[in-house]
Nucleic acid binder design. Structure first.
Lengths: 255, 255
DNA sequence: CGTTGCGTTGAGTACCATCAACTGGGGTGG
DNA sequence: CCACCCCAGTTGATGGTACTCAACGCAACG
């Protein structure tokens, strides 16, 4: 359960103003997210907007917590690569997954302003992440209007996903929940250029699906079996293949 | 379904800088919320921080929508008095209530920055509300650190409530959902000085409870009957009376 | 080659939805 | 004043969805 920060593969634990060492130079998501506004969209050609911004890069192996609910932290953590998820844990050990985090996501937008969060974050795959200093970001944020706007959009998108999931859990059956969850995830991946039209990385176990949509693993297995037997989709070897998108949308009651 | 803006009881439809006419002078929630930062906490003694802030006061009768999902709006709307709720509607008419809005709540924190929202807001009782101009607030917000902090706290509290509700819908049974929902509502009321220790205003129908916690009205009725017969709580004439708080918390699996 | 993690399948069951009938209060209109 | 209706809530009967418990298959791994 303890977070054991490892050194970044590229051997940078902390970087202040050394462009050539920054992993961000090659970051594929920077163009479209929060970091773009913060560090500049084209790091290779344009210098960093503000080199004084402190960044600490770390790796968390899969199944380990990146952040533990209730812990005080001075960091705002960005997922650089790999997948993670936010979740709350019930006293009896059951958990509810709140959202899946993809590269380019902040662990929590409001985390920039709050020193403690009420949910935990766990790595689904090995995750490379970057810790900004919360207080530095707080100062920077209103100053840079571009960054601020992508930040607000993050918050809004975040809230919207929660609202949709809430409606699903409250009002939809198992097959609808699962297929809607998967479709939304596909949308988010496509937005970020992850995966192809009908094939996506999919590192979630059925346990994660179950915890996300409020079912048991046994029942998720049955739902997935049905989707698979209908040629609608198939998950194997951490990869999702969509055989019949139209039918998937129909099951999901979308459009 | 149409919003039909009515004149404010005090006959102020629009107010720019006329302190003595402002309903806000007597507002009981201003001290603790967003408006306090914006307008000053003690309007009677201290002049407004910024009289140029445009405010338009309106009334929406119960059961009518204050805001319709997807509509473009230049306003950020604050609930001055009365109760309302945010909800999303499914294509087949079922709905999921996202949260209950009390006096002092913004219809949506991110609504300050977004010209459209994906959920609707409906008045539960007659609601008096105040429309600020979104763009004006956007400019004002980062400038006033006090206001900004209460704003961020709003956002955080908001997200936290969603997370808790999500966990409830995903992982808890009917009795737990209902009692947790009620307890959280009680907490929020107490925070704002609404109601007494064991008695609170409660304008929700069982239909609203059902739509909030993802049950049918029939089943909510059964749960409420059980809570009532156990002397735990009773709802009558728009008022909630708690007979046994400890037991209510036990049922809700709190503490 | 045992162990471990993950998924699958079957049998039995609990919870909650659905359908339907009915009650009581409050408002309205004759 | 009463008849009527509507709304909100209650109650009973029935059934389906999803849960629980348990056993088993399979692949990966040391």
């Amino acid at each position: 359960m303890q977070i054991e920060p490892l050194q970044f593969a590229g051997a940078i634990a902390s970087s202040v103003g050394k462009i050539k060492d920054l992993p961000c130079i090659e970051c594929p998501v920077r163009k479209s997210n929060f970091c773009g506004g913060l560090l500049g969209e084209q790091l290779e050609t344009t210098p960093l907007v503000d080199l004084k911004l402190k960044q600490v890069f770390r790796i968390t192996p899969k199944r380990r917590n990146i952040y533990q609910a209730g812990t005080k932290s001075d960091d705002a953590i960005m997922i650089c690569s790999g997948w993670a998820f936010r979740f709350v844990q019930l006293p009896d050990g059951r958990r509810q997954i709140l959202s899946i985090l993809l590269p380019g996501d902040l662990i929590s937008p409001i985390g920039i302003f709050a020193e403690r969060l009420k949910f935990s974050v766990q790595a689904l795959t090995e995750v490379h992440h970057c810790a900004f200093n919360r207080v530095e970001l707080q100062a920077k944020l209103p100053a840079s209007s571009g960054t601020f706007i992508t930040y607000i959009k993050d918050c809004a998108a975040n809230a919207e996903q929660l609202h949709l999931l809430l409606a699903d859990l409250g009002r939809r059956n198992a097959a609808e929940r699962v297929s809607r969850f998967i479709l939304r995830l596909m949308d988010r991946m496509t937005e970020r250029g992850i995966g192809e039209a009908d094939s996506f990385p999919f590192p979630l176990r059925q346990q994660h699906l179950a915890d996300a949509v409020g079912l048991t693993t046994v029942h998720v297995s049955r739902v997935m079996a049905k989707l698979r037997s209908g040629g609608i989709l198939d998950v194997a070897k951490d990869r999702l293949r969509v055989g019949n998108l139209a039918e998937l949308k129909r099951v999901a009651d979308i459009k």
